[in-house]
Nucleic acid binder design. Structure first.
Lengths: 120, 120
DNA sequence: TTCTATGCCGAATCTTTTTTCGGTTATTGT
DNA sequence: ACAATAACCGAAAAAAGATTCGGCATAGAA
């Protein structure tokens, strides 16, 4: 796996939390699993602009840090399913609030974003 | 400013929110301002491993998206102070929960992190 | 048998973000 | 006058993160 070059400090809660779910896709993946979309291909399809590879990689990280569990039946067309662990579930309320807050301000942010694109 | 090459979609709340405060430093900066650390140099000093340049850049983005305001008195030793806007304040409860959650699981995460470093 | 789908992985490449380094302006203290 | 500090900014470089591409294996369907 990838070896960091700069040291990180996990001294404040914010950094710790961001380490676990601060990526571009992690919260979306957790959200999908929470909604019952539990297989890699399905998760990939449910998240626009995502590639399957990145979903796999992020799932591996979520797995490593114990936010999700993997249940692979080793038969048939290899039906792998992921599910949230207790740790994963313990941050769902935060996820819900982030999502809600984002939705509240979605239009405003899109406007501001456009301003940036215009001047560029 | 930097011009993106890949399109983003701001179609789900999660993405919108992460666009505003999803960087490596933004939440820490908001936290600092909320704690009364309001000047760039002070913010920089309060966040370990941060460079002044990145604080300035992130402040500019927070400013653009209206999470903070700048109050620069154009006199004396240029006492610039940043403060949270209403929008900025509206996400403080999320910030507090993220921080809390991260602190709760800090030791666990550090352990898992070490495992990664050892195998590398 | 051949094609398709799934799950996974390695490696090269590209994009984005962060850092480093240098500079400008203006004020304060010596 | 001179050093120190603050706020900023631009640009090159480095680092981190994401994507593309190819591959492997398994199994079901055509």
């Amino acid at each position: 796996m990838y070896k960091r070059k700069m040291e990180e400090d996990l001294d404040c809660g914010i950094r710790v939390a961001l380490k676990l779910f601060g990526g571009k896709w992690k919260l979306c993946i957790i959200d999908a699993i929470n909604k019952g979309i539990v297989r890699p291909v399905e998760i990939h399809k449910s998240i626009s602009n995502s590639t399957l590879r990145v979903i796999e990689m992020q799932l591996a990280e979520l797995l490593h840090f114990g936010l999700v569990d993997k249940c692979a039946e080793d038969v048939y067309p290899k039906k792998t399913a992921y599910q949230l662990t207790e740790l994963g579930e313990s941050m769902l309320h935060i996820l819900a609030q982030i999502d809600h807050w984002g939705n509240e301000h979605s239009d405003y942010v899109k406007e501001k974003q456009q301003l940036l694109e215009e001047e560029a």
